[in-house]
Amino acid sequence: MKAKDIRNKSQEELQKELVELKSELFKLRFQHATNQLENPMKLKDVKRSIARIKTILKERELKGIQV
């Protein structure tokens, strides 16, 4: 997910997306631990998406913007 796409979403959408990504990360970690993960790069992509969303949420919090 690109930062540009994330910035166009509302606060509620970002919170929902964050919960979904965290759930997906948990499932991927479980698959990785049991050697069932087909694409290990998926872990990296999900972690980066979570970080991007958290960064944008923090930016909005500091600016006081509620989009």
Rank of each mutant, 00 (worst) to 15 (best):
N8Q: 13
Q66M: 13
K4T: 01
R29V: 02
F30T: 00
A51L: 15
A51I: 11
Q36Y: 05
L25V: 07
K9H: 01
M1Y: 11
A51N: 12
L14E: 07
K9G: 05
R60H: 14
L14V: 07
I65H: 11
R52I: 09
P40Y: 12
S49E: 13
Q66G: 09
K2T: 01
G64Y: 06
R60E: 05
L14H: 02
N39L: 10
N39Y: 06
E13F: 06
K27Y: 08
D45E: 11
N8P: 02
L21Y: 04
H32S: 13
E38N: 12
S10E: 02
L14F: 08
Q15K: 10
F30H: 06
Q66N: 14
K58T: 12
P40R: 13
L25A: 01
K16A: 14
K27P: 00
H32M: 10
L43Q: 02
I53V: 12
M41D: 04
S49K: 13
Q66L: 15
Q11A: 11
V19I: 11
K22E: 14
K9N: 07
M1H: 01
L62P: 06
V19S: 11
M1W: 06
S49L: 08
R48C: 05
L25D: 05
K42D: 03
K44I: 15
S23Y: 00
Q11E: 12
G64F: 04
K16W: 10
V19H: 10
E24A: 08
D5I: 04
S49W: 02
V46R: 01
I53W: 04
E20C: 12
R48P: 00
A3L: 05
D5T: 04
Q36M: 10
K54R: 11
K63E: 15
V67N: 09
Q31K: 15
K42V: 12
E38C: 07
L57W: 01
